[in-house]
């Protein structure tokens, strides 16, 4: 693979991703792979939620496929998808040149801040299910929101110390802008001059149709409710397991427990898309997911990763 030079423009979706990967790799981040579970946003990846806790330095970047069942539009809406990609960067402690690093990433994908109007517009971030909040901006490029830029202040109820800097790019929207595409399904995914050129639609249109139908009409709510309860129960079981195993090893299982919290969170999103959760119940489900996340975070803080390196 030849590394794309920054003075030419990306030609396809994957080129945008590869350039971001290269940029953040050069900037010192560990390039992780997506987490292998269904999540609503890149923030849910344990590389962000759990690793932003505690004193240990951390720097990671990754693509995270994200699912928002309520945003499904059967592949017809030019901008809305129930499955899309986020690019996520998380660095702890937040470096003092994080804004510059970020702007360089825009240059890397062909957005020259001298030709475009790049602005940092106040936007505070809060995740009720994660019990997290931070201050920062949404970054506007020519009036369009292209990223979310946040300094975490609290995660799962813990004061962030040191503070993590988090960047989230909505990849489809950003790439559509860079590539000048009006409908997401028309966006070239690989190089349009490839022997087999593929558009975003070639890859995802049918999936969007199928998942939209399943999310809205078919997903069995009874099963989903049951799965939610199961995940909740399993999470609590893991959290309250004895500290030592049969062989006398002290192992706390924060990460397996957190998997169950992620599951519960996604199941809640699915139930929400099915329209079977009333307004008051909604608040209760959010509270339950947050309680799980909090327990996982409490446990994580007691694992070696939650403490200063020796």
């Amino acid at each position: 693979m030849t590394s794309p030079s920054s003075d030419d423009k990306p030609r396809c979706f994957q080129d945008v991703i590869l350039r971001l990967q290269n940029h953040w790799a050069k900037s010192g981040c560990a390039i992780l792979q997506p987490y292998d579970m269904e999540v609503g946003a890149g923030t849910f990846h344990p590389a962000t939620t759990l690793r932003s806790l505690g004193p240990r330095p951390w720097a990671a970047a990754y693509v995270q496929p994200s699912r928002r069942p309520t945003d499904g539009r059967y592949g017809e809406n030019p901008n809305r998808l129930q499955h899309y990609y986020q690019y996520q960067v998380i660095i702890k402690p937040s470096p003092s040149d994080l804004q510059e690093l970020y702007l360089d990433s825009l240059r890397a994908i062909g957005l020259d801040p001298l030709a475009h109007d790049v602005r940092f517009v106040e936007d505070d971030w809060e995740s009720p299910t994660l019990g997290a909040w931070g201050l920062g901006w949404e970054v506007w490029c020519d009036g369009m929101e292209v990223s979310q830029f946040t300094y975490f202040q609290q995660v799962a109820g813990y004061d962030a110390h040191p503070v993590s800097g988090e960047l989230t790019y909505g990849l489809e929207r950003l790439a559509m802008y860079v590539l000048g595409v009006e409908h997401v399904m028309d966006m070239p995914f690989n190089d349009p001059d490839s022997p087999i050129p593929l558009t975003y639609g070639d890859i995802f249109r049918e999936a969007e149709r199928e998942y939209s139908r399943w999310n809205f009409d078919i997903a069995d709510t009874e099963t989903l409710f049951q799965h939610f309860k199961d995940a909740e129960t399993e999470c609590e079981r893991i959290v309250s397991a004895a500290e030592t195993d049969g062989a006398g090893r002290a192992i706390l299982m924060a990460q397996p427990a957190y998997d169950q919290a992620i599951k519960a969170s996604h199941l809640f999103n699915l139930l929400d898309a099915r329209g079977v959760i009333s307004v008051t119940e909604r608040a209760d489900y959010i509270r339950r997911v947050r309680a799980l996340t909090k327990k996982c975070a409490d446990l994580f803080m007691q694992t070696p990763l939650g403490k200063a390196a020796e």
Partner: peptide, 18 residues
């Protein structure tokens, strides 16, 4: 917030899209 070389044509086009 910027004086662009193209007199802001690209910036305006982006805003128009949004």
């Amino acid at each position: 917030n910027i004086e662009a070389a193209d007199d802001g044509q690209m910036i305006l086009a982006g805003n128009q899209r949004v």
